[in-house]
Amino acid sequence: MKKTEKSYAGWYFLLTVAILYVIIGLFKIEVILPALKFSLKIVRNILPVFLVIFALMVAFNLFISPYAVRKYLGKSSGSRRWLIAVGGGIISTGPIYMWYPMLKELRKEGVQYGFVATFLYNRAIKPPLIPMMIAYFGWKYTVVLAVVMATISVIQGIIFEKIEGGGFL
C-alpha cells in the first residue's frame, strides 16, 4: 500500500509538470521548445552517469544487507564504534524505513542514540550516487563534503550521547 502510494506520487508530480507545460504553452508557445531542448541537454549529460550508478547499486545490493551490517553494528565499542556507525550508514542501501526496525532492535540491545544518529546522518553519503555528484560538482567538492559530513555526524552522535546521558531522551 505504502509502496503503491509512493510510486503514484512520482507519476502525479510528472503529470503536474506536464500540465504546467500545456498551460504555459497555451499562453507562451515559444518557450516550450527551448525548455524541452534544455531538458534534453540535461538528460544527455546525466544518462551515462546513470549507467555507472546502476552498476554500483547492483554491486551494493548484492553484497550488503541489513543483516550483514547489523553483525558489525551491535558488537562495536569505544572510538571504533563511531567508525562503524559512519561506515554502516554509508554502505546502507535502500529506503530509510527499511532500516528503522534494525535500529530499533539495536536500541533494545543497548546501542546508544548517539550511534543511531551518526548512522542515520551518514546515510546521506551514498557511494553508488557519487558519480552523479562528481559529474555536477567535481571530485574535490564531493570529497570535501563527504569528509565534513562524516565528521559532523560523529559530533552529532557525541551530542546525542551527552543528551541521553543527561536523561533527556
Binding site: L14, A18, Y21, I24, K28, F38
Partner: peptide, 9 residues
C-alpha cells in the same frame, strides 16, 4: 522538465 522550463522563463 521543470528545470528546463524555469531556465527558459
Amino acid at each position: 522538465l521543470l528545470v528546463g522550463l524555469t531556465h527558459t522563463l
